[in-house]
Amino acid sequence: MPPPARMLVHRHGLVTRATHWINLAALIVLLLSGLQIFNAHPALYWGEVSTFARPWVSMFAAERGGEAVGITKIGSTYVETAGVLGFSGNEVRGFPAWATLPSYRSLADGRRWHFAFAWLFVLNGLVYLSAGLIGGHVRRDLLPARDQLTPRHLAREIVDHARLRFPASRRYNVLQKLTYLAVIFVLLPMMVLTGLSMSPGMNAGFPWLPELFGGRQSARTLHFISAGLIVLFVLAHVAMVLVSGPLNSLRAMITGKYAVAEEAR
């Protein structure tokens, strides 16, 4: 039987495509510069102040067999992470030089990169959200339809994902929609607000902001966790693109056109 005829349909508008790529560039710079800032004090705490004797997470160097090795402590668990975390490039540092921006030690330069691209990230997000709400992208493409929320449909989507089956369709599947909504309206605002909670200027103007997260150090920890979850989301997103047809997905995010079988219209 010949394969079903395929046709190109419009899937992504210009604003969605442009903000997607700007967002990707901003997130990469924010991640690398954020790790540079974290390296200035590679430890995380809960509460208002840094209890140096009881970090929740910390990266440091220890001597093993006459040589320095990296150690990562998570709760009460110690893991040897030699060459990557805690000690790399013959120096004590949380994350290695290749994972930070700049690669050399500079808290000031890391902050400059981070703050500049943080504002780009926020403004770009506001453009995307405003255009999505006004143009109907959020309602039309991201809000799950009623038929997508039935237990049978949800179960089928989960099974299809587990089997790596992703039929090309004009609309997102329900797992994609729920994930995108969680990232856009929960995870990204959490990262922005916890980042603002660590700013002395914001603390002076809005002293209640760090208290929303249980204190300044809790906000720093939640900021780091949020960033980690966004990295996991991006990696999962890229993996899904690769297994579902990278050329089709890239074409859709560059030109807006997406190929679907005629019966899938």
Rank of each mutant, 00 (worst) to 15 (best):
R105D: 11
L133F: 14
I134A: 14
L133K: 12
F115V: 15
F87W: 11
P96W: 01
M59R: 08
T100M: 02
R105V: 08
A99W: 00
P96D: 14
V92T: 15
F115G: 04
E63C: 02
A108Q: 13
R93V: 15
G66L: 12
Y104D: 10
L129C: 04
G110W: 01
F87Q: 08
T81V: 10
Y45D: 06
V92C: 02
A108C: 03
G65S: 07
S106L: 05
P55F: 01
V79T: 13
L85D: 06
F87V: 08
R112E: 10
D109L: 04
R54E: 15
R111Q: 15
I71M: 15
A99I: 06
G135K: 07
A43K: 00
I71V: 15
T72F: 01
E63H: 01
R93Q: 14
G65T: 08
G94P: 09
E67M: 07
R93K: 14
F52A: 13
T77E: 13
S58W: 03
W56C: 02
A131H: 15
F52W: 11
N124S: 14
T51P: 01
A43P: 07
G135D: 11
V49W: 00
G110C: 02
W46Q: 10
T51G: 02
A131Y: 15
G89H: 06
A97I: 05
P102T: 10
I134D: 07
R93G: 00
M59G: 08
F121N: 04
N90A: 09
G75H: 13
P102L: 04
G47V: 08
G70F: 00
G132N: 05
W46L: 13
V69A: 07
V57R: 02
L107N: 08
V122T: 08
V92A: 11
M59P: 11
S50H: 00
R54G: 05
L101E: 12
T72P: 03
R111I: 02
F121W: 12
R111P: 01
A61C: 06
F117S: 01
G86I: 05
A97C: 01
A61E: 11
I71W: 01
T81D: 12
S130P: 05
T51M: 00
P102K: 05
G75A: 12
D109N: 05
G110D: 04
F121D: 03
R64K: 13
G110H: 03
G135I: 10
Y78N: 05
G89D: 09
E91Y: 00
L123D: 07
R93L: 06
Y45L: 07
V84G: 04
L133T: 09
R111W: 06
Y78M: 09
G66N: 11
L101F: 01
S130N: 09
R64L: 07
S103G: 12
R93A: 03
T81Q: 10
P102Y: 00
S106W: 06
G70Q: 12
G75C: 12
